[in-house]
Design a protein around this nucleic acid. Sequence first.
DNA 1: AGGGTCATGTAACTAGTTACATGATTGA
DNA 2: TCAATCATGTAACTAGTTACATGACCCT
Lengths: 182, 182
Amino acid sequence: MELKPPASLILGMVRLGARSGYSIKKAVDSSTRFFWPISLAQVYPQLAKLVDADLLERTEDPEGARRRSSYRLRQAGHDALLEWLRSDREAPMVFRDEGILRLFFADALEPKEQLALVRLLRTRAEESAAHVRENILPVAESVGGHGPRFPLLTARFGIETRESAAAWLAKLERELEAEVGD
Amino acid sequence: MELKPPASLILGMVRLGARSGYSIKKAVDSSTRFFWPISLAQVYPQLAKLVDADLLERTEDPEGARRRSSYRLRQAGHDALLEWLRSDREAPMVFRDEGILRLFFADALEPKEQLALVRLLRTRAEESAAHVRENILPVAESVGGHGPRFPLLTARFGIETRESAAAWLAKLERELEAEVGD
DNA sequence: AGGGTCATGTAACTAGTTACATGATTGA
DNA sequence: TCAATCATGTAACTAGTTACATGACCCT
């Protein structure tokens, strides 16, 4: 059972206590979002597949008249998740950044426009770091006391790498400022 | 003419001197690849669209019996590229990293396995930094003397951010080593 | 009463991939 | 002569998105 990231993500979130598809999506939005986002239109079909493959067990669990499905890990699901975690095959990463792409071609701009672009990118990188710090780190900290520590570590990783990008851009910004004046 | 990144990328590469679809792809592989890769199956249809939109001019330019098309920027293409570079709209970035996703769920592993995972990720980050340093930086340096400087700057940015990720993982690795012994 | 949240799903679309198909040129 | 490279394109597929559709519950 070779899991792909979306399947592993859902299995992992169920393992950490998320019950419904909706709450899996919410959990992702406040944790793995910055290195693996997911949309609800992926969650529900993926859950159905995992149930079909006997990795998850689904129980109807309505609240009043509001329907709800509740999921738990089956043994095979637990095994598949561990196998994925242990696997030493390539763990590919995709990184696509339109901002850096603009920077690459920035020679076509006037010096003042180049500076404006670098400022925009630096601001954006700072905002991104701040977002992880303010919205994701606290959630990871709050669960850190009683069990999982790696969510906190990955949040810190996200902050560090984003801040390092912001710092590099800030340095470039100062250099361009010195050249162009202002 | 609101350009999307693949269109801008191709226009930008033509502006920097790439003539054929094939050579655009090669140029991308040795420069923007690490923050905006592209495949040949995207290049050719995209070129056709840009010709249709009068942003590029195509000339048949065979070498012997080997067919080849040569492209140049039209005025509208140049304008569209500059508009894209100047635009202050969101420049979205997507970052998906299966390795960090595994790290997030690593609490399910034994301490020794956690350490092995962190080692794998640290190695991978170092290799990625080395790849940019060895394969992309030199190309950017070689064109740096006579014109564009931003390709070199973005290559450095790529190296710095990757090395910062590798350094963070190396630090975590040492911490886990201290806990687990070995 | 009405907005925000909890909840589930599908449809239509966009962006990207790998694999296939073809053929010439170059250099060891 | 044979592998690598130059060159162009299409077909089939995979992964993801936004928009649509529906409805209950909760709080002010």
